[in-house]
């Protein structure tokens, strides 16, 4: 059997894991919907309609999918080097704050210049925040999950304090938000930008030298160093890239849709990205489909809450279930010897 075909079959088997998982999760979810007294068929048709049933639905799906995808890429880039990037919420808060502060401080400058400065500030803030746990792990030997989780809480409170009391706090609002920033990026630009990022990420990872260095370092650090790759530099570059990707997600959300910092806007975005990364098995295309799935679920649940009486808690449950089953290796391609068509233990 040709190698390419066996590779394809291998990939298909691996991705059928996710499909089976989603099916099981939807089955159990449907059962829970039945318990609530709603019809699962109504519920799922509402989700499908909300995800793909109209141009508005597709717009929502694309928006949420881009959000999740950038976070997934950010997590995956770091994960390849053994750096568990759980501080993504912190990166979102810091890049949001950087953007709004720069916008506030550069009031007199011309529009395009302000936008460029804001983007640079957000990227720098995201990169720095992502570097903190990375440096803690690789230079100080401190577990990066502890540093990451503490950073998440810390930046959340600092963000809340700043949008409540600092010059960027909005006056006369029911809950704490920042001032509105005038800069806008049209949604089509964000969408096309995200597509370009997918292509660029996949390309860089597979076909360029830095991408290869990243993959090799991730697989075996000692081997990489023996081959002359400066592993620490690669790791730090990965952390910087992860931070910049999170910052891009933040930029898309704030410059494209929110135009201000809402209280606790980053809640849950990190875990969504992580889920998509695992569903997609850390491959660029896989993660893209994982994010499409999560984005579709999120935009489907918008219509679900409008058209049915299914409570929002159940939607969270279904999402949790999908996450749960998505990483069970029902079929492990590595264990199937395609040449001799039998299972190898």
């Amino acid at each position: 059997m040709k190698d390419k075909t066996s590779n394809l079959i291998r990939n298909l088997i691996n991705s059928s894991n996710s499909i089976v998982a989603v099916l099981i999760a939807f089955l159990i979810g449907g059962f829970m919907v039945l318990l609530v007294g709603e019809s699962p068929i109504n519920a799922y048709s509402a989700i499908l309609k909300g995800a793909f049933g109209s141009p508005t639905a597709i717009r929502n799906t694309v928006r949420f999918a881009i959000q999740v995808m950038l976070m997934a890429y950010s997590f995956s880039v770091c994960n390849r080097c053994g750096y568990f990037n759980i501080s993504q919420e912190a990166q979102l808060y810091t890049s949001a704050l950087a953007m709004v502060f720069v916008s506030f401080w550069t009031e007199g400058l011309p529009g395009p210049l302000r936008l460029v400065l804001m983007i640079l500030a957000a990227a720098a803030a995201g990169a720095l925040t992502c570097l903190i746990p990375a440096v803690a792990k690789f230079k100080l030997g401190v577990n990066e999950v502890v540093v990451g989780v503490m950073l998440n809480y810390l930046t959340k409170f600092i963000c809340q304090h700043l949008i409540a009391f600092s010059p960027i706090a909005a006056k006369r609002t029911s809950s704490i938000v920042s001032i509105e920033i005038p800069e806008h990026i049209p949604v089509p630009v964000i969408t096309v930008g995200a597509v370009l990022i997918v292509i660029a990420y996949a390309f860089i990872l597979r076909s360029t030298i830095p991408g290869h260095r990243l993959t090799v370092t991730g697989k075996n650090k000692q081997f990489a160093q023996a081959s002359g790759i400066d592993a620490t530099k690669v790791l730090l570059m990965a952390a910087v890239t992860g931070g910049v990707l999170s910052a891009l997600c933040c930029m898309g959300e704030i410059l494209g849709y929110f135009h201000m910092i809402y209280n606790e806007f980053a809640a849950g975005m990190g875990t969504d990205g992580m889920t998509a990364a695992f569903i997609g098995n850390n491959t660029p295309i896989g993660m893209m489909f994982g994010s499409l799935l999560l984005g579709a679920l999120k935009s489907g649940s918008v219509l679900l809450s409008v058209l049915t009486e299914v409570p929002t808690e159940l939607i969270d449950c279904v999402q949790g279930l999908i996450m749960f089953f998505a990483t069970i290796k029902f079929f492990n391609a590595a264990q199937i010897d395609l040449k001799r068509r039998r299972v190898v233990e």
Partner: peptide, 26 residues
């Protein structure tokens, strides 16, 4: 979640609600 505000209001409008009531300056 702030990213669901507009989608839900829009979905209500598209579904033909006659009166839509929202909450808070957010």
């Amino acid at each position: 979640g702030a990213d669901t505000y507009e989608p839900k209001v829009l979905a209500c409008a598209q579904d033909g609600f006659d009166i839509i009531i929202t909450t808070y300056s957010d």
